[in-house]
């Protein structure tokens, strides 16, 4: 885990790519209890004007947060985590799916050894999370 003293504003966290397939969405439906049809039924998703089955926003948020929690090691040191879902993440019905690319930058050093990290998440080059940030406590 990085220490508060070691971290500087502008530091980049290790970026990560997260593949998403329909299998991930099915597992996430079961694990989260969110069985909304838009996450598994193509015909339903199309009927309500979506570009096909889309990822749970919370699945995208879970993946993006790993850039922060992998960096600090102990996810229990997360103080705050917030995102806006700016664009649906369409997940095609094949074994390839799609990929979310996530990067993070130290934006601010706060009191009590806390650090604000700004996150960027894109899918096919387009931003899928807006105003995404986490506040973590470092040793």
């Amino acid at each position: 885990m990085p220490t508060f003293a070691q971290v500087n504003v502008g530091d980049a966290l290790p970026a990560q790519d997260f593949p998403i397939t329909r299998l991930n969405l099915v597992k996430y439906c079961g694990a989260s209890g969110d069985f909304n049809y838009i996450h598994w039924s193509e015909s339903f998703a199309n009927d309500v004007g979506l570009p096909g089955v889309i990822s749970h926003g919370m699945f995208t948020m879970a993946e993006a947060g790993r850039v922060v929690t992998d960096w600090i090691g102990d996810p229990g040191q997360l103080c705050e985590y917030s995102v806006r879902f700016t664009r649906p993440v369409a997940v095609p019905d094949d074994l390839v799916g799609t990929v979310i690319s996530v990067s993070g930058t130290v934006a601010e050093k706060l009191e009590d050894n806390r650090v604000k990290v700004d996150l960027t998440a894109t899918c096919k080059g387009e931003t899928v999370l807006g105003r995404a940030y986490a506040i973590v406590r470092l040793p």
Binding site: G57, E80, R84
Partner: peptide, 16 residues
Amino acid sequence: YSRVVHGEEKFIYARP
């Protein structure tokens, strides 16, 4: 509910 999507989410943690 059929028209619903998730717009924003924020967590404020006291502990895990």
